[in-house]
Design a protein around this nucleic acid. Structure first.
Lengths: 408, 408
DNA sequence: AATCTTTGTAAAAAATTTTATCAAACACAT
DNA sequence: ATGTGTTTGATAAAATTTTTTACAAAGATT
């Protein structure tokens, strides 16, 4: 199998090109639908059954596709089902946070072929790529994975990222900003780099709560406030790849100073930082609260999970804190909702674990600030598999890119 | 020629379907590119030159396509160019405002085949469709146009519109909301209905200032504040067709009461209404201004164009008014820019005529409120052909729909 | 049990691409 | 300016691919 960056570089005759495109479509279809019959494939790619079958035969000979048993009858002879050959094409997905990273190797059924590994890393690490490579080598050795079968490497990370060229403008050292080139130099495989919130969004769209929703907003409610957008069934990156900057939309005139240098950004009102700072201040002031009882004198140890746990046990101060960040996020989301008219909003990240303690105020706030016709058609939910959605989104994106760049 | 609402209703054999799709693609290509050679068409639709030529021959026999002379050589024999046969397929586009409407009949070169006609109408008129039909009949009679050759009817109007079903939820009488059905019942042609701001946006994208920009925001700055969005090269409607509600995004907590029932909407700060009201108040208070000199005692006669004209002549009060609505719009746009990361913003409508008097404050405001990396890559311009962009957008959309619903 | 559907296969028929050929236009050297 | 080599475009015939048709097999429905 050959992988090319630019199809037009390889010259194919008319028929070869036609066949190449059709086989690509088949692989893509089988990735999405798991198994399909020759008849169904023929219908979907617009060829007759004999042609569809001969293409499948070719793909089988090249070990990309295999017979997966007979399927259910729809009123006649039972069809032979075809699917991607397990383990023949693997990808590697990595997600970086502010201080940690995780990496996993996935097969074409989006299943981990070895347990996910976590490690310490930051986007500014000079030897970031080597660190990741070491982790992958370890996995490959421990679980006997042939790295030759890994065809794509995808990385998601915080920052303003141009996904077309794989450049992260938030990395301090200019020489390290072109992440895609660095990965390519080390791995020599298909590379994909994008923002963490966007890949989580894509994961939620392909596998999670936003599945089937063509217009979705997915919020990563954490130290910052990332937003990924699915518009008309496609991941939206914006003109230069900076779409979804919810964090630094203006929330209040002359508010607190933000790390971005401006004042009153949403991030200064409703991120994990704010929640913890407010909790700390409350404890120092001696507010009546479980938190005061537990953390008085060592306020710096308070974590979001402590606030959420206290709220669950009925602690009014904690509930108040969560309620107020919820109301603020809801108000900010209202503007986004009126501009984008999504049909679902999925919340993920540390704060979203608070569940109804934030969901209710958000919903309240949205109802208050949006036109009823717009807010009436919207679902707001909390992600059920946030831990994995980033890696899964990257995996899905890699397979998609792979099947549109592969010379079978 | 046959027009079908749903291709799957008509059963075609495999080859017929394949050919139908290819011919559709050719018509669409020729609509976009005006003229193309058989070789170029073959490349674009993925067939060989002989096949491309035989398809073109078929289309020529059916009078959709004609030979348009020989084109320029690219280093060899000069190619025979093909294009859509002029006047063989016409469409009718209508744009409604709050109190008036305009209608025109266009050919496949997006040229009016008769002068545009203006008339009085409102979206709540019971006999709206009849009114439009009368105007078209008049045009057809006066300019000898065969209405049989009109294959599509498109209407754009203010309101919350579901473009998929052609329903305008802002029309007061529920029975009149389904505009698409009403048009279809009268004209029996392909019908398209959408919001006015969105069709203006599409017009600017296909023919105007936003041409070539894959991510654009187009603002209709008028009695309300409409916004149309082009995202990844496609017109964005939102999940239920309500995207772009800039008018009713919250601008200030506890601001003035808006017609929507909420307080502090952007519309209450920066629409034509506001501008005129502020001018009227100033004149009543006896502010030093050309406007006071001219309109004292008959303040209700002040129009936007008066304010703009005064500003052009150096009137400080008028300049101040335009400056302040510009700053406000800029601030509101900043949030939209950070969420959507467009590469161009096009301003149209009455207020935008003020040109640099509003452009400068908007740019200022955007620079102040956006992250530099995002605002640095954005152009903000004023439309050059706003008067026509709505009708042209509708025309382009109709041809697009037409070529994907036509059985040639 | 008879009939209707769907799937799969092989041979015939049709459609499409290749290849070859020629003409036209241009670039470049002389 | 002229000639040569190269590129592009058009067309016909040959080669190849794809669809159609016909039919058998397998299961669902009545």
């Amino acid at each position: 199998m050959i992988l090319v960056d630019n199809i037009s570089e390889v010259k194919l005759s008319g028929n070869e090109l036609k066949n190449y495109r059709r086989k690509k479509k088949i692989l893509d279809l089988l990735y999405r639908e798991d198994t399909l019959s020759a008849t169904e494939i023929g219908k979907r790619i617009g060829v007759s059954v004999p042609t569809s079958l001969s293409l499948l035969k070719e793909l089988s000979q090249k070990e990309f596709v295999e017979f997966k048993g007979t399927g259910e009858s729809k009123g006649g002879r039972r069809p032979a089902m075809f699917g991607l050959k397990q383990d023949s094409i693997l990808v590697m997905a990595c997600e970086l946070g502010r201080y940690t990273g995780k990496v996993g190797v996935f097969d074409s059924h989006n299943k981990l072929v070895a347990p996910m590994v976590k490690f310490k890393a930051s986007i500014d690490d000079k030897d970031l790529i080597e660190k990741i490579a070491d982790e992958v080598d370890k996995i490959a050795k421990d679980y006997n994975i042939d790295t030759q079968r890994i065809f794509g490497v995808g990385i998601s990370m915080p920052g303003l990222i141009d996904e077309v060229n794989g450049i992260n403008y938030t990395i301090k050292d200019k020489k390290l900003q072109n992440v895609a080139d660095r990965i390519k130099a080390r791995f020599h495989k298909l590379v994909y780099v994008n923002n963490d919130a966007r890949m989580q969004a894509y994961g939620e769209f392909v596998f999670g709560q936003a599945k089937g929703h063509q217009n979705a907003l997915i919020i990563n409610w954490n130290w910052g406030l990332g937003m990924g957008m699915i518009m008309d069934g496609k991941l939206y990156n914006g003109a230069t790849g900076f779409a979804g900057e919810l964090s630094h939309t203006k929330y209040e005139e002359d508010g607190d100073l933000c790390i971005c240098g401006k004042r009153g950004c949403l991030e200064t009102v409703t991120s994990v930082y704010v929640l913890i700072r407010q909790a700390q201040e409350g404890v120092r002031e001696g507010k009546v609260s479980q938190l005061t009882a537990k953390f008085k004198g060592r306020e710096e140890e308070i974590g979001v999970e402590d606030i959420i746990q206290a709220a669950r046990q009925g602690d009014e101060f904690s509930i108040f804190l969560l309620n107020s960040v919820g109301l603020a996020l809801g108000k900010a989301l209202s503007n986004a909702i009126q501009l984008l008219n999504p049909d679902i909003i999925v919340l993920g990240g540390a704060v979203s674990e608070a569940n109804q303690y934030v969901l209710t105020p958000i919903q309240q706030s949205v109802n208050r600030h949006c036109l009823e016709q717009i807010s009436g058609n919207i679902q707001i939910v909390i992600s059920e598999n946030w831990e994995r959605s980033g890696l899964l989104g990257t995996t899905a994106m890699l397979y998609q890119k792979l099947f549109s760049n592969m010379l079978v």
